[in-house]
Design a protein around this nucleic acid. Sequence first.
DNA 1: ATATGGCATATCGTATACGATCAGCGTGTC
DNA 2: GACACGCTGATCGTATACGATATGCCATAT
Lengths: 228, 228
Amino acid sequence: MTLAATSKSQLAYEAVRESIQNGRFDPGQRLVLEGISKELGVSVVPVREAIRRLEAEGLVTFERNVGARVARIDPREFFVTVEALSYIEGAAISLGAALVTPEAISEARGINAQMREMATSDHLDAQEFSRLNERFHRILSDSCPNAHLLDMVDRGWTRLAHLRSSTFGFVPERALASTDEHDRIVQLIESDADAREVEMAVREHRLATPQAYLQKTHNESANRKEQP
Amino acid sequence: MTLAATSKSQLAYEAVRESIQNGRFDPGQRLVLEGISKELGVSVVPVREAIRRLEAEGLVTFERNVGARVARIDPREFFVTVEALSYIEGAAISLGAALVTPEAISEARGINAQMREMATSDHLDAQEFSRLNERFHRILSDSCPNAHLLDMVDRGWTRLAHLRSSTFGFVPERALASTDEHDRIVQLIESDADAREVEMAVREHRLATPQAYLQKTHNESANRKEQP
DNA sequence: ATATGGCATATCGTATACGATCAGCGTGTC
DNA sequence: GACACGCTGATCGTATACGATATGCCATAT
C-alpha cells in the first residue's frame, strides 16, 4: 500500500504471510530460509527477520538449528482465541474511549471531516489524504493508552485468519458477529456519535457475549470427552 | 538458567530486557545497535534480532533508519493491560483445562511425580531434571490448544513489569492479587487435584474479578475528567 | 537575526562468507 | 539381524563489510 519506503524484510514478511494465508504453504511445510530468499530476490538476513516475526505472531514455528515450519494448529484453539480476543478488544476499546481526552477527540473529528470532504471532492490528492489518515490514527493511538494491546489483538486476528484457512473451511458465526460489532463500533467512533454512546455499545458487547459462549464451548468439549 | 545451549541472540535479548526492567536503561533512551553489540561482545545481527523481538513485546519502539528507543508508556495503560491479561489468562487456562486429554494429564502427572522424587533425593542430576521439566511443559503445551495465547499473556506480563518499573513505583493491589491467584492455580495443576477442581477455581477467578475492576477503573477515569 | 541549503557523521539495512549444528545414511561390529 | 558409531550434506547462526538514509551542524544569503 505504501510506496517504495518499505524495507526488504517487510516485503519478505508480507510475501510469506500471504503465501501462508492463501494456502500456498501448507501447515507443517518447511520454510527454508535460502529458498525463500532466492525466490524473493533478497538476502537471507531480512528473510530470517520476517520468519522470526511470523513466529512471534504464531503463524510459523521455529526450532534452533532445525528451521521453520508453517504452524500446525489445533482447531479448538480457534474458539478459545476468538473468545479471548473478542473480550480483550472490547475491553481495550471501552477503557480507551473512557480515557481519551476531549481535545484529542475533537481534533481527530476535525481531521476526519477534512478527509471526508477530500474523498467526496472531484480531484483527490492521494498523498495528502494518506498523510491525514496517518495523522488521524496517530492521534488516536497517542491519546489512547491501549495502542499495544490493540496491536496484540490485531496480530491475534491475523492468526485467526490463518487458522481459518488452514484448518476450517468456514468462519464460525461467533467470529463473524464479533467482526460486525467491531466494525459498527469503529463506525460509531468515526461518526459524530457521543463518546459515551460508543462506550456503552462496547461495554454492552463485551459483557453480553463471553459467558454464554464459554459455557457453550465447555459443554461441547465435555460431550466430546464422554462419547469418543 | 539453561546451559550453553542458548544462542547469542537469546543472550542479547535477555541482557537488554533485564537492563530495561532494572531501570539501567531509561524510557526514551536510545538503544544503538553497535554500542550494545560491543558491550556484549557479539555482532550486531543478533542484537538487531533481539531488539526487534523486544519491539514485538512492546518494550522498545523502533523506527526505520532512525533506531530503537526504550518505550515510553502511558501509565494508564497499566490498568487496561492488567484487566485484559487477567481475563485472557483465565479464559485460556480454563478452556485449556477443559480440553486437555486425560492421557496427557496422567502422563504429565507421572513426570511431575518423578521430578518431585528427584528434587527430594540426596544427589540431584540437574541436567536430567531440567530435561524432565522441559518435557513436562511440552506435554502441557502440545495437548493444550492455548499455547500461543499463553505466550501472548506471558509477553504481556513482561510488559507490565516494565510499565511498573518505568512509570509507577508500586504494584497495584489488583495485579498482585491476580499473580497470587495464578500461582495458586499452577500449584493446583501440579498437585494431584482433580482437573475439574482446577477448572472451577479458574472459572471462579475469571468471572469474579473483571467486572468489578472495570467498573472501578471507569469511575476513576470519569472523576478525573470532571475535576481537572 | 533568521531561514535555507548542503555537507559530514552516525546509524541503520542488507549482502556475502564462513563456522556450527543437526538429520539422514551407510558401514562395521557384536 | 540389530545396534552403535561416524561420516556427509543440508541448513541454520553469526561475523564482517559496504551501501543507504536520516540527523545535526555550519556556512551563506536575505
